[in-house]
Computed example of a mutant assay.
Amino acid sequence: MVVLLFRVLILIAFIMVIYTLVQYFRNPDRKLQIAKAANTFYMVDDQNNSKKNIQFVYKGCHFEGEKYIGATEEAFEVVDVHIFARDQHELEGITRDDLYFIEQEILMRYPYAAVTWKYPISKLILTPIE
């Protein structure tokens, strides 16, 4: 009887370890950190949940975007996205073309959205090109 109970407990522990490993590898925050270390673009977004913010990494800089719902001609859609950098020191090396690339990626997912950049990124966008 004790041997059977011990086998069941080992089976339960084995299932919990496998479940934990699967959750670890599917974690979006872990994928963001990997993309940040590799200086690639990666976006975490739940398009069906308008209350959940967009998080993305581009060239080692972690950005976050707040989505706002509004009315379009056909339905209620995301009409405004406010983007800011989590750490302003990571913005070093980000160019205007990089910001345009990020805007295009957001507009592909939310075609009715107007992208608004928060400080200090808005200063780069508003500065005239010489």
Rank of each mutant, 00 (worst) to 15 (best):
K123M: 11
F56I: 07
I34S: 00
Q104D: 15
T72M: 08
H62V: 14
F6V: 13
E90K: 09
I106E: 03
V44I: 14
R30Q: 08
I18E: 05
N53I: 06
F56H: 09
L11W: 00
E77C: 05
E77H: 03
R7E: 08
V17H: 06
D45T: 09
E130V: 09
S122K: 05
D97P: 09
F76L: 14
C61M: 04
F6P: 01
M1Q: 02
Y24N: 02
A71L: 10
D46N: 15
V81T: 09
R30V: 13
Y58P: 03
D80P: 01
I54K: 00
E105Q: 15
A13Y: 01
I12W: 05
F25N: 06
T40I: 12
R30L: 15
L21T: 07
V57E: 01
A85R: 11
Y110T: 08
I94S: 02
T40Q: 05
N49T: 07
F84E: 11
V44D: 10
K123D: 07
I125E: 01
Y68L: 14
T116M: 03
E90D: 14
P128Q: 09
R30C: 04
E66V: 15
A75W: 02
I102L: 10
E130F: 07
F6N: 12
I10V: 14
L32A: 09
Y112S: 11
A85H: 08
V8E: 10
G70A: 05
T127F: 02
I18S: 01
